[in-house]
Structure formats: C-alpha cells, structure tokens
C-alpha cells in the first residue's frame, strides 16, 4: 500500500465525521435557509428568510450585543491570561500549587460556572445579600444588575473566568518553550523591561495568543448556553435569538433560524479574518 493510500485510510474516519456531520449539517441548514425543502414540497429557493432577518431591528441589536460579549471577553481574558502567564513562569515557592489552582476551572463545565455566577452575582444572589447584610446597600435588589443586564456583564464575567486559564495555559507553554534568552539579549542591547515585553516577548508569544484568542472569540460569539442562562431577554445574543426562532411554534420561522445561523457563521469567520490580519500587522510590523 502506498504511503498516500495509508494516510488517506487513516484520516478517513475523522474526515467522514467532519464531512458528513459538519458539512452535511451546514448544507441542510443552508438549503432550509433558502426555503428549499423538497420533502414538504418547497422546491423554489428564495431569499425571504434572509430578507426578514436583515429587516428585523432585533437582529442588529443582537448582533451588537453578541459582538460586544465576544470582543470584550476575548480582550479581557487575553490580557489577564498573558499577565497570569508572566507571573506563573517565574520560579517561586508554591508555584506548583498556584499553577494547579490556576488551571483548575478548565475542568468545570461552562454551565456549572454560569450557575455559580447566577448564585453569586444576581440581585438575589450571595453577594447582594451580603452587601445588604453589612449595610452597604439597603435591600439585596439594590445590588447593581450584573446578571440579565443590558451590558451582559454576567456573561462576560463567566467567559473571562473560564477562558483565562485556557489562554493562560497555552501562553505559558509557549513562553516556556521560548525560554528567557531572547529577553536577555534584548535587555543587554539596551531594552527596558517594558520594551523587552513589547518588542520581544509579545511578538514571540503572539502566534499562540492569536490562535487561542481566535478560538475564544469564535466560541463566545457562537455559544448559546451562557447568554441563555445569564443574558437579558432583550436584546438576546444571536445564538439565543436563532434558537428561539427555531423552537417557535410557527414552523415558518425555521428558515429564519437557519438564515441566522448561517449569518452567525459567516460573520464570525469574517471578523476572525480581519482580527488576524489587523493584529498581525500591529504586533509584528
């Protein structure tokens, strides 16, 4: 058997899952978004679902909210993760323990984290009660709205909490494989600590930060469960909106749900493309 054939056979199981489930699902979704469903007699594809998505004001609010959630959580967790990695790569007593604690919540499911946030930060949650107990606010309901709020603070909090260790672990591994010699070179050539970070370490870890943050962005842009649990009713995040349409009693809303899902996929691909291009030029140029 030729090597080429072997590689093909070895990849076949994984590839068939990707092709059948992913592209198959995408294709069906695409067809339904164009109102094309021969099984129930819809054989004339049209763009009416897209038209109604794009003429709906709620869609634009939802898009802005979802972008805000994804962008803000990605930026905050990337910055904090880099900071954490900078601290954790140093040698200090108890580093092993701190490292373990830092990575611990990687194993906690998003849903569990979201419920934790709900219990802690909602206006009837633990912090609100404690603040009222200690007289910082009069009633628990005076606690600032961090959950179900229009700025999606609770959602962002949950994502940041969950994604810092994810990005941090990647960046830390990256820093450790790079070592400290490049920074030593820079220092001895006259770069200050900050210059060394900005002009040497950051560009060196940048590919790792970039791929990790793109994953986080794509995930937070397309995830349903966290905004469903912690988000306000209006505007809802795009995936929540799409799901609502999908489960609408009116079956005619389904093509709209599919159209919205396709638009979410295209938008996140487009935004990732621009993010990668722009940030590459800024950091390495």
């Amino acid at each position: 058997m030729s090597d080429r054939m072997k590689i093909f056979l070895l990849l076949l199981p994984a590839m068939s899952i990707i092709v059948v489930l992913f592209f198959g699902g995408l294709l069906i979704g695409l067809m339904r978004s164009f109102n094309y469903m021969p099984v129930i007699g819809l054989t004339e594809p049209d763009l009416s679902a897209y038209a109604s998505v794009f003429t709906d004001r709620e869609f634009y609010y939802s898009f802005l909210l979802t972008f805000h959630i994804a962008f803000t959580s990605t930026v905050i967790s990337s910055i904090l993760a880099i900071g954490a990695a900078l601290l954790l790569r140093r040698n200090f007593i108890g580093r092993g323990v701190v490292n373990f604690l830092f990575q611990l919540n990687l194993t906690v499911p998003h849903l569990v984290g979201a419920i934790g946030i709900l219990y802690l930060f909602s206006q009837s949650g633990s912090f609100a009660r404690l603040a009222a107990e200690f007289g910082m606010i009069q009633r628990p309901s005076d606690f600032p709205a961090l959950v179900f709020d229009p700025y999606a603070i609770g959602i962002i909090l949950q994502y940041v909490w969950k994604e810092i260790p994810f990005i941090g672990v990647i960046v830390l591994a990256n820093m450790q494989s790079i070592g400290e010699d490049y920074e030593s070179v820079a220092r001895s050539l006259g770069a200050s600590k900050w210059q060394t970070f900005r002009h040497v370490l950051l560009p060196l870890i940048f590919p790792g930060v970039l791929s990790a943050s793109v994953m986080v962005f794509a995930f937070t842009f397309g995830a349903y469960e966290i905004p469903a649990i912690l988000g306000a009713n209006f505007p809802a995040a795009l995936p929540v909106l799409a799901y609502r349409k999908y489960t609408d009693v009116d079956l005619a809303a389904r093509p709209e749900a599919m159209a919205m899902a396709i638009v979410i996929a295209l938008l996140s691909a487009l935004m990732i493309y621009f993010y990668v291009r722009y940030s590459r030029r800024r950091i390495r140029g």
Binding site: D181, Y182, S184, V185, R187, S188, L189, S192, P203, L204
Partner: peptide, 20 residues
C-alpha cells in the same frame, strides 16, 4: 546597574536573532 544601562552586550551561542 540594570542590564540595559551597563554598556555590556552579550552575544549568545545560538545567536538568538529575533525570528519575526
């Protein structure tokens, strides 16, 4: 004195040119 103020430059064995 901080390393950047000593007027000493070190050239490492594996050169360590900034790859990017």
């Amino acid at each position: 004195d901080k390393p950047e103020n000593r007027g000493v430059v070190m050239v490492f064995q594996n050169y360590l040119l900034f790859p990017y």
